[in-house]
Amino acid sequence: MSESTIDADAGITPPDSASAEGRVFTASGGDWADIAEEAASLGEERIVVNMGPQHPSTHGVLRLILEIDGETVTEARCGIGYLHTGIEKSMEFRTWTQGVTFCTRMDYLTPLHNEAAYCLAVEKLLGITDDVPERASIIRVLLMELNRLSSHLVALATGGMEIGALTVMTVGFREREVVLHLLEQITGLRMNHAFIRPGGLVQDLPPGAIDSVR
């Protein structure tokens, strides 16, 4: 199906290897229909299930191709790429500062961490790492730690939701509002703040921010 001449079956192990398990395929997209057909014709009890990209427990989009034996998952393969955004190519047509607004949206639970990683790299390339004010670095760490709190709260909340404890989800998000309120007071936005820029920050902490954090 792809236009390349690559032999996608190059990973098949010969049938006479070790146990009588059957043929082993490496399914990596594009050959899904053939795999499903073969597996069906082998007549085994294993069912191949496609836990598609839209599913309540695959937060965001993740396609899981599962081989299920009764209720036990024997094999799982991931299909990814459903959120590919072309951020890198878009950044080629923007200035360094505008690039921050793109990279902030890569991991949307911790936008400040993405920004910090990008800005540290840009500062290193420009050779200005020593010129970043120390106060800016410290505030960066403070913001990143607040963001880490909110991200971990989401992890706990959705983890609880997945095992059925729905109240954990509401509690987690409720606590998260405190952190988001703080971040809004400091950066102006609840999410995707383009606050950490190459060279430091957009602006200093507003008055009263430290007291709010305490």
């Binding site: 839209q54 965001g60 949307y108 509002e177 609840r190």
Partner: peptide, 12 residues
Amino acid sequence: FGLACCAIEMMT
């Protein structure tokens, strides 16, 4: 049908 960042705001 939450896909990306807006999904988090939808959840909140």
